[in-house]
Design a binder for these strands. Structure first.
Lengths: 222, 222
DNA sequence: TAATTTTTTTAGGTTAAACTAAATTATATT
DNA sequence: AATATAATTTAGTTTAACCTAAAAAAATTA
């Protein structure tokens, strides 16, 4: 029934899924940039995926994933995040080391494998970066979070994730001990450079605008 | 330095390695049959691998892996067997279910991943089929075993592996409770059909010539 | 040894996925 | 609205890996 997808096709689907859910515009160029490829290649692949009814496409109008395409993409994201969880929790990788490996593992084809892995890991809800892991049915918990720069001064918040997943950023956070689960108090935002003053472990610290915009937190009472 | 190999190249190398170590002849046709491909494709790929110094090749004379090619193939076998061990020991797959998945996992590229996995699994020496797992340096324990049909009557032996890895054979063994580690006593060989009489768990049973030839054991005193 | 069969190689073609450069359409700016 | 800029598509190549059919070499058999 469902002709199995190539790794390239899966990567396109996943990129489109991410642009569709996160960002705004989902044009040919955006996809090309996301996949480190060229617009011409994207146009070509888009046509193939449209043929397979994984997305709808009209010339010059961009694409929209179909339900089927969306579900498939969710499945790939599920695998990616489960593998990331495995790599960190079981194999003791750091959170900044797992992306590239999970990028390969997500393409392993075996329903059984995913379900057994999920079971083995204890059906985790979040991956090491705080991103929700879709369950077998594609359901995942909403993460009602916002970035530090959107928190109003003098409120407490718990670190819950990152917007930027680059190893450089993750390593930087690790060094500053700004890791998932930690509680911080946002003190003030500096008008000069948009840096943010906060308290972590009873110590005052300042984080740059860039960090504040990419660090996700959940407000907590207090 | 080392241009990374494609999945196809890896599969060719592995096939050549297996034919080279197990079987006798390692001709173009044998490789083609092993990889479910055609002789013409093999000739082509062989040339490429020879260019990369992974094997030596002379027209019509067959191929011989170089040290470099041999080492690389061992690395792939290492990964395959470690993943099989993982699938059975951690994810609770049956020994007849893991081959195809390991066939995919063996191509994941990450030195770190293999070493962490090996460590996590406790540096196993044998995979679920009794095949030795090469260590980081490519060393692996010799398995001085022979098939049941080569055991002389009235001797005890411990089941240590299989020659044939097909799910059908493995399921059949499982059903008969002829699993790795079990001790059997070889009673007699029937001249008529080469079937073998043996005792397992104090019960007499007969196994076909085919089973006897593909079940590997180690002689034990008694 | 000559003839036949088998194995291997060559030649030429196909497909998937990429690319560059040129053409086309859409968007933004005066 | 006309023009300039940006985004997208088309056309035509390239590469890796496969294929079939035909040619060439090696092995086997009469």
């Amino acid at each position: 029934m469902m002709s199995t997808l190539s790794i390239s096709e899966e990567n396109y689907l996943k990129a489109i899924f991410h642009l569709y859910t996160h960002d705004a515009g989902i044009g040919t160029n955006a996809i090309a940039h996301h996949l480190n490829t060229k617009a011409a290649s994207v146009t070509e692949m888009i046509k193939k995926l449209a043929e397979k009814k994984l997305l709808t496409y009209e010339k010059y109008q961009g694409v929209v994933p179909t339900r089927k395409g969306f579900t498939l993409a969710l499945g790939i994201v599920r695998k990616h995040r489960l593998w990331e969880y495995f790599l960190v929790e079981k194999l003791k990788f750091k959170w900044d080391e797992v992306h590239d490996i999970a990028e390969q593992l997500e393409h392993i084809k075996s329903e059984r494998l995913v379900e057994q892995l999920d079971h083995y890991l204890g059906f985790p809800k979040l991956d090491p970066h705080g991103d929700p892991i879709p369950d077998k049915e594609g359901k995942m918990c909403a993460m009602n979070c916002c970035c530090v720069s959107d928190i109003k001064p003098n409120s407490n918040a718990k670190i819950s994730g990152v917007k930027n997943h680059s190893p450089a950023f993750l390593k930087h956070l690790e060094k500053m001990k700004l890791t998932i689960g930690k509680t911080v108090k946002v003190i003030d935002r500096n008008d000069f450079d948009q840096s943010v003053e906060l308290v972590l472990n009873h110590e005052t610290m300042y984080i740059s605008k860039e960090v504040a915009e990419n660090l996700l937190v959940k407000k907590i009472k207090g």
